[in-house]
Design a protein around this nucleic acid. Structure first.
Lengths: 191, 191
DNA sequence: GTCTATACGAAGATAGAC
DNA sequence: GTCTATCTTCGTATAGAC
């Protein structure tokens, strides 16, 4: 399946570029070049153009994170939290603070189109939903009350995303580590 | 001082555009047009080009927020927290979820330049520092231990930024409101 | 000192050759 | 079906007329 492989390579490349530069600074031209594919072929694989490619890139990254989260949550909410933050810490350190979360990047770069949300933005909203849902379920299994679990899951996702961005700006893992420590204590003691 | 006024209008316009579209989608052309200024005059006011304008826009937005925070913190940490979130909530609602935080936008869009941080990114790092410092001071005044106050301030800023972005993606204030509620309880009960 | 006109490159997208 | 060549628009930045 050279077709599938080439397609997947474009999606992964786009995700990596969005993660680093943001959505608008990610050009189809360069994604194609980086994947060794000609420019025209991207429009064969993604007739919807850049928005379709970006949406698939967001879903790709979101699912990778979700799978890691699922695996970690099998041993409990605290371990899931730890994994969620460790995952972002790795991204920061391995890229010398040049890469962050593509879902967040898409969320703050809504294009000038006055109208309705793009496919990429809808994918971003679904990514956040998915992560929150997984964390909330784990918190409920741990004994956290229904409504509190949902709110606390939102807090974890929001704080992780914000902390990654702050760590990038400061070129230090300190914001992420501080936030992880605060949340770990909060979740461990049950709040 | 027509000079100062024109300059300030360009800075404010740039901040507003970055807040909505992100850094890369904000063109000097359009900022100038929106301010009624000719393109050439922006390079008179900002010889450093786009990076200088963006850095000043970030500082402008950061100081506006910092002043609101200072005012609210005079009556305590809980009130400061409430103001910080109310401020972002207003931005979201008034713009129909099309605007967020320009400091966050700059933090996730570091340009392709392989080298050192841009002036705009340095300004973003300083903005986060300033907000954290103010919140941490208020928390310490409230009796929170030294190291804990710093970590908790980082959590508040990170969670607010992340929640604003999530609310934009979902076009709902729910993520922001959930996060605000969780943090309010955490800070009020002292953790 | 202000602004018009323009240079130069890169963006998204497509037409049409192989 | 793949890829090259190109269309059109827009980006940053500047030169030089008033």
């Amino acid at each position: 399946m050279s077709d599938t492989s080439s397609r997947q390579q474009l999606v992964a490349g786009a995700a990596d570029m969005i993660r680093r530069r943001g959505l608008n600074a990610t050009s189809i031209r360069e994604v194609a070049k980086h994947s060794g594919a000609p420019l025209g072929s991207t429009y064969h694989h993604f007739p919807g153009g850049k928005d379709q490619l970006a949406a698939e890139a967001v879903r790709h990254a979101a699912e990778t994170t979700a799978r890691a989260l699922d695996a970690a949550l099998e041993t409990g909410a605290v371990e899931g939290l730890r994994t969620f933050f460790a995952l972002w810490r790795d991204v920061l350190v391995r890229t010398d603070f040049r890469a962050g979360c593509p879902v967040l990047a898409v969320s703050v770069e809504e294009p000038q189109s006055g109208g309705e949300p793009t496919a990429a933005l809808r994918a971003a909203a679904e990514a956040f939903d998915g992560w929150e849902h997984r964390l909330a379920t784990a918190l409920r299994a741990q004994g956290t009350p229904e409504d509190r679990a949902a709110r606390r899951a939102a807090l974890v996702v929001a704080a992780a995303e914000g902390a990654v961005a702050m760590s990038r700006a400061r070129r230090s893992t300190r914001p992420l580590d501080d936030v992880a420590a605060e949340l770990a204590e909060l979740v461990a003691t049950g709040g």
